[in-house]
Every structure is written in C-alpha cells, then in structure tokens.
Design a protein around this nucleic acid. Structure first.
Length: 618
DNA sequence: TGTAACTCCCCTCCG
DNA sequence: GGGAGTTACA
C-alpha cells in the first residue's frame, strides 16, 4: 500500500477535526452512514499515539469481527508496530484477553475453554434432558429458544418474568422450569470449566463490581474508543461505565439509524443516554462523504437478509465461473466434521469438557447418549485422568473402536504431540475410518480438515488455537467458486448484518420483497418490526455510487427440492448478468424484473434512505 | 433398555 | 443439512 493511500485512510477532513483532536473527557460522535465514522475513530487513535499516548494503554472496541478486522488492517497500515499493542478487537475478544491476563488473580481456573453458540446449545440441551424437561407432555421450549431467553436475560438485564413476558410470551407457562434450567446450566458450565460468549462479558462485568478490581483495571487504560456504539446492550455499556469510573476518557461513535442488533439485546437507548452515563460528555453531530467506472468484482456486493437467500445465486455464479466470497450464513466451524475434530482437541485440553466428550464418544458405532454419559461418569470418578478410560467397559459391539480411541487419546496427551497441528494429523487417519462409514462423500470433508490442520500450524498451543477458533472463526472456504487464488478479484455476497460498516461502489440488494425483507420471522413485536426498515437502510447505504434493489415479480410456492423454487433462479440470472456488465462497463440493462431499480445514486440512496427513515421517526 | 435408521419439517441476524 | 419424533432391531 502506498503512503498516499494509507494516509488517506486516516486523513480526517476539516469537518472531522474537532472530533479527532478532542482533548480529554467523554466524547460521543453521532454521524450517519458514509460519513467516515471509522476514519474519524482511527484518526483519533493516530492522533492520540502521535501525541504520546502508549498504545498498550489504549482500547479499541467494535461489535463485529469484520469491523474489527477492517479496523486493525487500516490501523496497521499506518502505525504497524504500535497498532498491534493496542487492545483492539470485538468486545468479546478483548474480554477474553482481560480474563486470560487477570483471571487467575481473580480466582478463575486458568484453562477455561470458550464455547460457541452451538456448543452452548448442546450444553443447554444436556441439562434440559437431565432435568426431564424434554419429556414433559406439552412442549417445553427447544434448546435454541432456551438459550435465546437466557442470553437476553443476562445481556439486557431485567428479571426472568419481564423478559419472558415481553419477548417470549409463548413460554410464560414454563417460567419456573426455565429458572431452574438456567441455574443448572450456569452451574454446569462452571463444573466443566467452560465459558460461553455471554460469560466472557459477565465475568468481566462482575469483576468490575468490586471497587478495587475496577479501579485497578480502569487505571490500566488511558483511552477507550468504541465503534458502532448504537449496538451496545446494557451489559456492555455497564462494562464500559465501570471501566471509566475514574478516568473519563472514552470516545464513542454511532448512528442511531443503524441499530440492528436487538436480538442481542442491543438498545439505542444506550447511545441516547451516553451524556447521562458519562457526565460532562461532548457530543458532536454532522458530516461529509465522498465519491469516484468499470468496477471490479470486489468493489461490488450482493446483500440479502438471510444466508439461504443467496443459495441459487451461488449456483449461478459458480456455473458462470464468477469468483465470490460469502459472508454470514453457515460457517466453516459449523460443519459437522470440523466440529468433530475440534472436539478431539477439546477433550485433550480440558478433560472435563462434557459436551466435547459426548460428541467424540458418539462417533463410535454402538455409543449413544446413554453409554457416553456412563463413560463421562467413569472419567469423573477417576478425576478426569485420561488413563481411567482404559478401565471402562463399553458394550461389546463397540469394544474394538473404543479401544482404538482410548489408545489414540493416550498417545496424544503425551507432551511430544502437544501442538494442535500435529495432534490433528494423528487424529485424521482414525477419523477418516469413522467418517467413511457415516458420510457419502468424505473427500471434501477431509480437505476441510487439512485446512484446519493448516490453520492450527500457526499456533503453538492447543488452548490458544481453540480460543482463537471460537472468537475469530475462519469464513467458509467451500464457498469459493473456481480456483480461489486464480485472481485476486471476487464478488462479495453477504448478509446485511455481516455487511455492516462496509461500503462498495455497487450494491445489489436482492429479495427486497415482503416476507424476505422485511423478514416474516421478525413480526412478533413492534421493536423487531421497527428494526427491519433500519436493516433496509443499512443495506442501501452500503452503496457508494450504484444501488440496485431487486426482487422477483413472482415467487412459486412449494415446488420443493428444486433450485428453481421461489423464483430464485430468474433473480439469480439477472444479478449475475448485471454484475458482469457492471464489471465490463457495458450498459446497465434493467430487465423487467427490476421495478424500482435505483441507479447512479450516491445521493439517491441517501434520499431513499431518508424516506425510509421517516417510517420510524414519525 | 439403548441404538440406529427412518420419517417429516424447517430452515435469521452476532460474538 | 439438522432437529424432533417414531419405529425396528439387538
């Protein structure tokens, strides 16, 4: 990257100077889309460092991984060494860092495993089964719902009764059972030494309730900078307030029209209340935007509401050999075979990890939930020493495979094979035999696993590798059309949520039709309905110069199993043609499918956005 | 009693 | 492709 371009990533325009050069004390910057909020925040960071602030005493927080990645890259381009010392990343990853650094002193078990959403659901399910709730006649909420309620409760505050009543009213009959379930879930996490995403924040937050600990931690950071502040929930803003109990240097930027994370209990209130939470705050509003044909693929993006909305488009793109990358939707780590292998590593690292044991053990033919539970009890009786596996007696049909597994785990626990990559290499042959029985076509799966080993080779310790994988998972690799590295140009497909904070020259918003956007899944209460126009606003304002809003004139219902279902195919061909035409500088033909196509349109997208805005501001 | 195999049904968004 | 529910087999 040349010096000019890297400088321009930071160079604030005159409008932004007051914010960038703000002295001390709390500062809130409210600005709309496309006004360079991130640039302003990075400009401020650079100005703090050049003014003598020590990078390791600065915290730079965001709410999505992509935003964090982008900020870090831009940061490193200008201040390479210093940027790496800044405590930068998603709130969750910084929480992890805080807990790994100070957790021991706070009496935490040092080797905790961070579990992702799917693992949390499995653990919740385990506890739910034990309490006998899964066999109750009238249906108890399913594990996903249970975890949603739980998460809402801890992130948003308020009591169980309130949360259930206001957001999960169909579960009102189960309030007592839910309370008992959550208690058991919490205790179980502690006994098996795992932290879920919420715990990362909760542990941090609880620790801050202690005056001395809070004062201590507060004193370690001179400035805290927060991006996308409108997406904080009350747990998160509580942490920020506690971190600024004495030192009041905090800078937050946000856009009240862009709050789209209510399912994470985020509330715009936090931003509106900023001046109250941080007395003496300076509030800056306004600002600017800028401009710039023959647009390469990578400066174009196709956006949609739900991951599955692009399925047919992906086929069409692959058929025409247009390279693309998809963000959001199914991730690498959610693939069953990747999870299997990760669970091997997890039991080696933390033998108390019940969920991981269940997964590993049930790979064996003849092992179901009951035998797996018996094995775990046996392990527990032996203080979780892997050696006790030998003395467990499995059903006869499973004996041979069980003993292979037991020997393998024994070998892997030796220090000579402690690196994650070498462990994966040793597990693979065993896993290959198991998966040839389970899956039709194992080759692509095994390639994924080699990719995993590749990824692991960058880490010395298994614990560090597992944590990194959970907090910063790789994007799906199977989604690349054509040979991935043939050229550096690819089209971006992304859910609207994952596109937040990013911009492209040309944006195609597809399935802008009732039931898709707004989504028919989001109608249970007024707040969620309000959020849909905000999402549309976010999607449209990702476009710098060209915005296309497209939807099929007709959806076919229920011809299931066919990729032509739902009128997707026609839409897909239209988008594919246009993406290519845009890249080749041909005419931008607008076939009949596009009713209210909106093109050359920096300002126009803004005006449409403004019109939408009036929907919820009135 | 526990496991495997079959069916049907429904498929958010984030860390 | 996975979850929930049912059924057949050891």
């Amino acid at each position: 990257m040349s010096i000019e371009t890297s400088r321009s990533l930071f160079e604030p325009n005159p409008d932004q100077l007051p914010a960038v050069n703000h002295g001390s004390g709390p500062l809130l910057i409210i600005a709309g889309a496309g006004t360079g909020k991130t640039r302003m925040l990075l400009g401020r960071l650079a100005s703090l460092i050049s003014g003598g602030a020590r990078p390791e005493r600065l915290m730079l927080l965001t709410f999505t991984r992509r935003a964090a990645e982008e900020m870090l890259q831009r940061c490193e381009a200008v201040i390479p060494v210093s940027a790496r010392q800044v405590w930068a990343g998603t709130l969750h990853s910084v929480a992890n860092r805080v807990l790994r650094n100070y957790g021991m002193a706070w009496g935490m078990h040092p080797n905790f495993t961070v579990i992702d959403r799917a693992d949390s659901e499995d653990l919740m399910d385990l506890v739910r089964n034990e309490l006998g709730y899964s066999t109750i006649e009238s249906r108890f909420p399913r594990k996903t719902t249970c975890l949603d309620i739980y998460s809402c409760l801890v992130n948003g505050g308020g009591g169980l009764a309130d949360v259930v009543k206001s957001r999960f009213s169909w579960c009102a009959n189960w309030q007592d059972e839910l309370g008992a379930l959550f208690k058991a879930y919490t205790e179980r996490k502690q006994s098996v030494n795992v932290l879920d995403y919420d715990d990362l924040l909760l542990y941090w937050s609880f620790r801050l309730e202690d005056d001395r600990a809070a004062g201590d931690l507060d004193g370690k950071f001179d400035h805290i900078l927060v991006n996308e502040y409108q997406d904080t929930n009350s747990l998160q803003s509580g942490i920020l307030m506690a971190m600024r109990r004495r030192n009041t240097n905090i800078t937050a930027v946000g856009d009240d029209a862009q709050s789209i994370y209510s399912f994470r209990a985020a509330t715009v209130r936090n931003m509106l209340d900023f001046p109250e939470h941080f007395p003496g705050a300076t509030v800056v509003t306004r600002v600017l935007e800028h401009y710039e044909q023959g647009i390469p693929f990578r400066r174009q993006a196709v956006l949609f509401r739900a991951g599955s909305h692009s399925n047919s488009l992906e086929l069409e793109l692959a058929r025409r050999n247009i390279p693309f990358r998809k963000y959001g939707g199914l991730r690498f780590l959610e693939a069953a075979h990747v999870k299997d292998l990760v669970c091997f590593l997890r039991v080696l690292e933390n033998p108390r990890d019940e969920v991981a044991w269940f997964r590993v053990l049930q790979l064996i033919n003849g092992f179901g939930p009951v035998t797996a539970a018996a094995t775990y009890r046996h392990l527990a009786a032996g203080e979780f020493s892997l050696g006790t596996l030998k003395s467990f007696d499995p059903p006869s049909a499973a004996r041979a495979e069980y003993s292979t597994l037991e020997v393998l785990l024994g070998e892997l626990s030796l220090t000579s094979t402690s690196g994650p990559a070498s462990r994966i290499e040793r597990i693979l042959p065993f896993y290959r035999r198991l998966s040839e029985r389970r899956y039709e076509n194992v080759e692509p799966r095994l390639r994924d696993l080699e990719q995993l080993a590749q990824l692991a080779s960058g880490h010395d310790s298994t614990e560090q590798f597992l944590t990194d994988l959970t907090l910063n998972p790789p994007q799906s690799t199977g989604d690349l059309a054509g040979p991935p590295m043939r050229d550096e140009d690819w089209l971006v497909l992304s859910t609207i949520h994952s596109a937040k904070g990013l911009e492209w020259d040309a944006v195609y918003l597809i399935h802008a039709a009732d039931g898709f956007l707004p989504s028919d899944m989001a109608t249970e209460n007024p707040e969620k309905i309000d959020e849909e126009p905000r999402l549309a606003y976010v999607a449209m304002t990702r476009a710098r110069d060209f915005l296309y809003v497209a939807w099929p004139l007709r959806y076919h219902h229920r011809p299931s199993k066919s990729s032509d279902a739902h009128g997707y195919a026609q839409l897909s061909r239209f988008i594919t043609d246009n993406v290519r035409a845009t890249m080749e500088e041909e005419a931008y033909g607008l076939p009949e499918i596009q009713r209210e196509a909106i093109g050359p349109a920096g300002p126009l997208s803004q005006s449409v956005a403004a019109r939408l805005r009036s929907l919820w501001e009135s």
